[in-house]
């Protein structure tokens, strides 16, 4: 931290002590997080223990929402499917992201070309989400290009239906959206590895595989952690992609929370949210052990 030294300059009369000044400066942000994140979080926690009927929540203790959560096979399946999505998307974006970041950082020799390719990867990120979802219909839909091609080549006689509005479609959309943050986080870490280190390893006769395993991987752990946080939280918290790409046919935890909210079933929705929150925060806490975000950003 460059400015931990900001003891008041000697020839100046400080009106505020530095500590109080910091508190005042950070106060608006602290107030908003407290009012809009922490208090609502506490309310959700409390509501999950309350009784309810079709229209309202009663201030009476009721543990049914929690009992259902841990005993209903249906609910457990929701969590299983959500984890399946997280696992598949993480593995694919990690492998794909690493290949691309590694290629850009160590194979592309021209700086301008590298910048151009990075921009090409980043640009679609600024397209509105719903539009990116609908863009899959002309490709994967019943009458989409892929089905036209498959039928034109006589590989199938009828259109393949699992391409769109299916788990497959949801995964395609996730991977399409979330590879970019993985590439960015890893490429950022790779840019901090001095080329002389790689060159020295090469001169000493290390193979490309050895360089990746013994030098690059250990040095980009913070990047991997930050990229993974982005991917895991995006998939676990998503409801829109699942809804659009599966045509509401695939049910994840997020989707079921939304369904219950729409039916005014607040306590079970709250209980599910709390479990989801604990899972997300544990994963993030685990990943943060590999990356000190504040230190990473200030480098």
């Amino acid at each position: 931290m460059p400015a931990a030294q900001s003891a008041a300059p000697p020839h100046q009369r400080q009106v505020l002590s530095p500590k109080v000044a910091s508190w005042l400066q950070v106060a608006p942000m602290a107030v908003i997080f407290t009012l809009m994140v922490l208090i609502p979080l506490a309310i959700i926690f409390v509501v999950s223990f309350l009784d309810y009927d079709f229209a309202q929540v009663f201030p009476e203790l009721y543990l049914g929402s929690w009992v259902d959560l841990f005993t209903s096979q249906l609910t457990l399946n929701l969590y299983a499917l959500t984890f399946k999505f997280v696992a598949i998307v993480w593995v694919v974006t990690f492998v794909l992201g690493f290949c691309i970041a590694y290629f850009l950082s160590f194979h592309v020799r021209s700086g301008a070309l590298r910048l151009l390719l990075m921009a090409a990867i980043a640009i679609p990120f600024w397209t509105s989400g719903p539009i990116r979802m609908v863009s899959w219909v002309p490709l994967l839909g019943r009458e989409g290009l892929i089905n036209q091609a498959l039928m034109g080549l006589h590989l199938t006689s009828e259109p393949v239906t699992w391409l769109m509005y299916s788990e497959f479609a949801v995964l395609v959309a996730y991977i399409n959206l979330l590879t970019m943050p993985m590439v960015a986080a890893m490429a950022n870490s790779m840019a901090k590895i001095p080329h002389s280190v790689i060159q020295a390893a090469k001169d000493a006769g290390a193979s490309e595989g050895q360089i990746i395993r013994d030098i690059i991987f250990p040095l980009i752990k913070p990047g991997i952690a930050i990229g993974s946080i982005f991917v895991v939280t995006a998939v676990m918290g998503d409801v829109f992609i699942v809804k659009q790409m599966s045509g509401s046919q695939v049910n994840t935890v997020g989707m079921s929370i939304v369904t219950e909210l729409n039916a005014f079933m607040y306590p079970p929705a709250a209980a599910k949210s709390i479990v989801l929150l604990v899972i997300v925060l544990s994963i993030v806490g685990l990943l943060l052990r590999f990356a000190d975000i504040r230190k990473e950003l200030q480098k």
């Binding site: 931290m1 508190w23 950070v26 994140v37 959700i44 676990m236 918290g237 409801v239 989801l276 504040r294």
Partner: peptide, 26 residues
């Protein structure tokens, strides 16, 4: 504010991280 050390800096920082990673719907 973060240019100095102050008590509560971790509280605000981790609130920010929490706010960022929490599922939006939640």
């Amino acid at each position: 504010a973060y240019r100095r050390k102050f008590r509560g800096s971790n509280f605000v920082f981790y609130s920010a991280i929490t706010s960022m990673v929490l599922p939006g719907i939640f």
